[in-house]
Amino acid sequence: MPGYCAFCSVAAEGGQSWCPDCFADMPWNHGACELCAEPLPTAHVGTLRPRQCGRCLKRRPAQTSSWVPLRYESRVTRLVQRYKFAADPRAGEVLVQLMLASLDHAPELGAAMIGVPGQHERTRECGFDHTAWLTRRLAARLALPVIVAERVRETPSQRGLDRLSRRRNVKRAFVVNRSLPAAVTIVDDVMTTGATLDSLAKACRDAGAERVTAVAFARTPSARI
């Protein structure tokens, strides 16, 4: 309900969708890998060394940075599921508001936003493209234009696939049929292994982007994949 915390239902102040206690208790993804947003061990947080995980040091992703403010855990998992599977508009709005509330920690977002193109069959089943909705709302709040990428082939669901299979599944699945500015932002709701965003980032590079920032609402820690 408007005016109440979306997580505990107590009265919320200042037009926020959460109370201070729930906001502080969110599973924030601080100290994550700067390339893929993988949560890093606590020992890496606050160090002056580049924050990159072992996988990115071995195989650098196509994006030049990632901003994923939360981990896909506890109340965040429930919020995302309400948005994606129940088409709950308030849950979607809370997602956008939480992302905007963490902008102080975000890298430079570039001159345009590009959402991961949805699966046509899944979009028909759900009645809406949840990533396109999220991209449009976020871009509008940041006064950025939206550029539409194309999914050139339907891909099986990523659920249940290991890291290598996910990468193969979405390889060359996207194309951007126009020249892009030097810096752009690509958007998905949840980053699991990063394979989908990596594939879209490659398509953006092919279209002329030199710097690609990958943005998602939540990151699944690799221990859960």
Results as ranks from 00 to 15, higher is better:
Thr77Met: 05
Ala216Asp: 04
Asn29Tyr: 06
Glu150His: 13
Arg124Trp: 11
Arg51Thr: 12
Ser9Lys: 08
Ala183Leu: 05
Val212Gly: 06
Val152Gln: 10
Asn169His: 02
Ile114Val: 07
Cys126Asp: 12
Ile114Pro: 00
Pro181His: 10
Met99Ala: 02
Ala143Gln: 14
Phe23Trp: 14
Val10Ser: 13
Thr196Tyr: 09
Asn177Cys: 09
Thr64Ala: 14
Glu93Ala: 06
Leu138Val: 15
Gly208Trp: 03
Val80Phe: 08
Val190Arg: 08
Ala207Trp: 02
Glu108Ala: 06
Arg178Met: 02
Arg141Leu: 05
Ser222His: 04
Val76Gln: 07
Trp67Asp: 07
Ser102Leu: 01
Arg211His: 04
Leu164Val: 06
Thr64Pro: 01
Leu79Ala: 09
Ala86Leu: 12
Arg205Trp: 01
Asp162Thr: 03
Leu138Met: 15
Val187Cys: 11
Met191Leu: 14
Ala6Ser: 15
Arg90Gly: 02
Ala149Lys: 14
Gln158Asn: 07
Gln119Lys: 03
Ala139Ser: 14
Arg122His: 10
Val215Ser: 01
Ala32Leu: 10
Cys56Ala: 11
Leu138Asn: 12
Val184Thr: 07
Asp25Val: 00
Glu93Ile: 00
Ala12Phe: 08
Pro61Val: 10
Glu108Trp: 01
Thr196Leu: 00
Arg168Ser: 03
Arg90Cys: 01
Glu34Ser: 13
Arg224Gly: 01
Leu35Arg: 15
Arg151Cys: 11
Gly15Glu: 00
Met191Tyr: 05
Asp206Lys: 07
Pro41Glu: 13
Arg172Ser: 09
Gly46Ile: 15
Phe128Gln: 15
Gln81Leu: 10
Arg141Asn: 14
Lys202Phe: 00
Val10Lys: 12
Lys84Ala: 02
Arg60Val: 03
Gln158Thr: 03
Leu48Glu: 15
Lys202Arg: 08
His44Val: 09
Arg151Glu: 08
Ala112Gln: 03
Arg60Ala: 11
Glu210Ser: 03
Pro39Tyr: 11
Val215Ile: 11
Ala182His: 10
Thr47Cys: 13
Arg55Ile: 13
Ala149Asn: 06
Ala112Phe: 04
Gly3Asn: 15
Pro50Arg: 13
Ala62Asp: 10
Leu164Pro: 04
Gly3Lys: 11
Asn177Ala: 09
Gly160Glu: 05
Pro181Ala: 09
Pro39Arg: 12
Glu108Tyr: 03
Asp21Ser: 08
His44Thr: 13
Met191Phe: 11
Trp28Asn: 01
Arg55Thr: 15
Arg153Asn: 07
